[in-house]
């Protein structure tokens, strides 16, 4: 048992931002959430960590509905690396990572040995051990992202939710970061824009359009030229090398399949149910 979403929908004002998605990750795997801007990737992640409650359907953690658990109990199992988490305080990397121990502490909560061990391990995992005493504002974008992941790891979660963690990173850091995530002994759900990265590092991908999951499965089965054309409205070639590794090549020019043939029941942008 683990974190699961069953047929969740989330209505935000007039818009249905998540529309009947089911997600049942196999423990230990890395799941990619794909889809164009506004397709509901971030919203789905918010439902999964309990930051928002679904309008219908349920998210469960070990069989218990997320809303019935305390924030702390959720935080002991599920860690989140969100976009745009910035601070102006003069905080050191080690103290950022220490934040991850908060759900494991009590009201007064002195730092126990176990906390220090978890913090050290998280720093080691993310290659930040020798940068532990650096101040936040002196870090590069990649180091900040790694510090956030280290903070999430210090939480000792079973589930790790990441919202576009490779944003603003150069290609080497993108590769390093995702290979780190896919090696971690936790179940990870990662919202991604880059299809090649998804193909490279995810065990399974789920493709969202307008809040709906329109495809799901191993990247080799899901990521086809036809799907990319339909979901993203771009022309692409998908090649597999002899070891089955995918490469997606994009091409300029019009596509030969109608865009949005899924998801949209009318042209107004508010899909009916």
């Amino acid at each position: 048992m683990t974190l699961e979403a069953r047929d969740v929908a989330w209505r935000r004002g007039e818009a249905l931002v998540v529309d009947g998605v089911t997600l049942r990750p196999t423990p230990g795997t890395t799941i990619g959430l794909l889809g164009p801007n506004g397709s509901g990737k971030s919203s789905l992640l918010r439902l999964l960590n309990g930051a928002a409650r679904p309008s219908s359907g349920v998210v469960t953690l070990d069989g218990a509905e997320l809303g019935s658990l305390s924030r702390r109990d959720v935080a002991r199992a599920v860690a989140v690396v969100s976009q745009h988490a910035h601070t102006d305080t003069d905080i050191r990397v080690r103290d950022v990572v220490r934040l991850g121990r908060i759900p494991h502490r009590g009201f007064l909560g002195a730092a126990a040995l176990r906390d220090e061990v978890a913090v050290a391990a998280a720093l080691e995992h993310t290659g930040l051990t020798d940068k532990a005493d650096r101040l936040w504002h002196t870090l590069s974008g990649g180091e900040r992202q790694r510090a956030h992941i280290a903070r999430a790891l210090a939480q000792e979660p079973r589930e790790l939710l990441l919202d576009e963690p490779t944003n603003h990173l150069d290609i080497r850091h993108q590769l390093e970061l995702l290979s780190l995530v896919s090696r971690l002994p936790v179940t990870s759900v990662v919202a991604l824009h880059d299809l090649n990265l998804a193909a490279m590092f995810c065990d399974e991908v789920i493709v969202l359009t307008r809040g709906r999951a329109v495809a799901g499965g191993p990247p080799g089965e899901v990521l086809t030229a036809e799907l990319i054309a339909r979901v993203y409205g771009v022309r692409a070639q998908v090649r597999a090398d002899e070891r089955g590794r995918l490469t997606v090549l994009f091409q300029p020019g019009p596509i030969d399949v109608p865009v949005e043939s899924w998801g949209a029941s009318d042209g107004s942008g508010s899909p009916g149910r």
Partner: peptide, 16 residues
């Protein structure tokens, strides 16, 4: 301390 990175991070660290 959990508020250093804003409400969302605080919530994900188990703060009500």
């Amino acid at each position: 301390d959990a508020f250093s990175f804003g409400d969302e991070v605080a919530a994900s660290l188990g703060i009500a």
